[in-house]
Design a protein around this nucleic acid. Structure first.
Lengths: 189, 189, 189, 189
DNA sequence: TATGAATGAGCGTTCATTCAT
DNA sequence: CATGAATGAACGCTCATTCAT
């Protein structure tokens, strides 16, 4: 009985504007930006914002979900390249590096998500990312490069504990990648 | 010249109560606990809390400083054991493990310190810890067990990125320790 | 282009209620009344009060501005009567008397304005009042009744130093008016 | 520093120190200085301050009383000069001028007294001042210089309404003195 | 007695959320 | 539906006053 929804266009556009603005504001000013500021940045009134996202937690969850969707896309692209011959370990570490670099910029998103205990909110995107990462891991294990006990959860664990300031990221990757592989860290790495 | 100040007894006891309560409250409810709640948990009035710590930032810094002092004690004890023959790498990883386990309990302290930009406040304790850790690293490098480029900052980096939930800690240590060493992670680790 | 804004009605009414209540509360309890008390007296929540006046200083400035606007109206009315034949000195002293009587009721407004260093906020009203008073003075000087060196600032000076308790006002006017005129105070004044 | 027991001497010295410090602090920082700051400036603990003055109002009253005592001294000196031939009107206006100049510096004291509704507290000094001023007025009236209906209360009224900023004081005296005399303000005054 | 630590009501202000328009 | 005014609990912090030492 849910009939034709004519005003969908506006609603969809508003939702997009709000998500974009929320991402920008949280990134720029931290997770404590006021809802009023987000609404103003989106060019809507607070009421509209609450129509789309009943609580601040929901809004942050949606912002996080967008990030997860981009991660899933990235993981699937990496997997596609592996199927054309690139070594899976290289793709996995490059993927790890890209995601973490991105989360430096979006650092507040992570903080916000944790601070507010936001639910992921987009199980589908998470599943897509998980499947692609699992496939990368398996391919690397088949190559003998990735340590046999590594799982998707290990990658998630590293995501969730990555440093949030740019200069630390490279060193952290250097320290962390050997644990995923079958090789010792070279003396000059 | 160094007179015993009689009325200090209460004040000292209150300071202790406040620090303890602050640690507990921040751990339990995050860095955003109200000062009133901390005061209530300590069994004092807010004014008393502000007499001891002029701002919330100061209070959080003091809580963090206490934690740092305990870490310094731990590092020095580990270093002492190395000088009696224990392998330095074992002591370093055990130390890492202990500190991180402890910071799981005190997890919010870290978040609080970052959130509020709290100054360490106790440079001496930090220096003590740094010196002991540096000595541990050098001993391990002399043994040929610890990778030659590892520094104290690497250990700090790992501290600051350690997971904050209990079950993840062990696995995380497994993944992270190989980066500190000259050896690959064994297939069955 | 000049659209009627429907939802403004409530806001306008609230603003009025707040200004009225603020004036009453400040008069009754001095410039240190709490914002909560003003809000309660106005029948709104504090937040509403802050929506209309971002700081306490702004609120006080608005209360003062209302008073200034009434003074300007009074001065202009007096000037109009002079142009129809009333002696300017009589109108000026009567105006002085009226404003000061009014400021007895609104006494705290003055104190509040000074205490908070509030900006007038309504320069237009102040200019109107100043122009009308200047015209009154000039007319009285043309009549030969008002002392030739009297200026608008003298009137402001008297405003700002008027007594704030009712019984003193009449005597104070008796003492102060001769300084504005070309005549000595009569023996039986 | 703990001398032999001379309870009275210490107490008297402390009272003096507190009064001096209170006067300075209130003059320097306005009537809202904290009791702690006054105590610190006096070199005593708050408790001592409260031993001498049970409330802040009492302390301010005492500061005001000191000022009144100085005014009484001034008035009596003026009266003495009149008895040696100086015109009483000149002495009265000069006295008015001196007191008001002094109250510009001590302006915060007056503000504090009003703000706190402090009782004068030192009836004796007030009576002394009143008697001397009354005698000045009578002498001026005998000379035919001072208007016959002027009373001590008129002088008090002028004190209480004097401007508190330096530049205004001279002009204000010019405007106000004619009301006390039997003469019109000269055209070039 | 003097000390200064403790008290706690109160302050101005903020902000996630609700609801009349 | 969007709007934005209204709500009110909560926040960090202050300060006149009290009271144990």
């Amino acid at each position: 009985m849910t009939q034709a929804r004519a005003p969908r266009a506006d609603a969809v556009r508003n939702r997009k504007k709000i998500l974009t603005a929320a991402g920008e504001q949280i990134t720029a000013h931290g997770p404590d930006v006021g809802m009023d500021e987000i609404a103003a940045a989106a060019g809507v009134a607070v009421g509209t914002l609450y129509r789309h996202f009943p609580t601040k937690t929901d809004l942050v969850a949606a912002v996080v979900a967008e990030f997860v969707a981009r991660v899933a896309d990235d993981a699937e692209a990496a997997l596609a390249r592996v199927s054309t011959g690139t070594p899976a370990l290289d793709e996995l570490t490059a993927f790890l590096s890209r995601v973490i670099e991105a989360s430096v910029t979006d650092r507040a998103v992570k903080a916000a998500a944790q601070a507010l205990g936001a639910e992921p909110g987009d199980r589908a995107a998470e599943d897509r990312a998980g499947a692609a990462v699992a496939a990368l891991i398996h391919a690397g294990q088949a190559d003998g490069d990735i340590h046999p006990d590594v799982t998707v959860n290990d990658i998630y664990l590293l995501f969730s504990t990555a440093p949030t300031d740019q200069p630390s990221v490279d060193r952290w990757l250097t320290l962390v990648v050997p644990g995923l592989t079958t090789q010792a860290r070279p003396a000059d790495s």
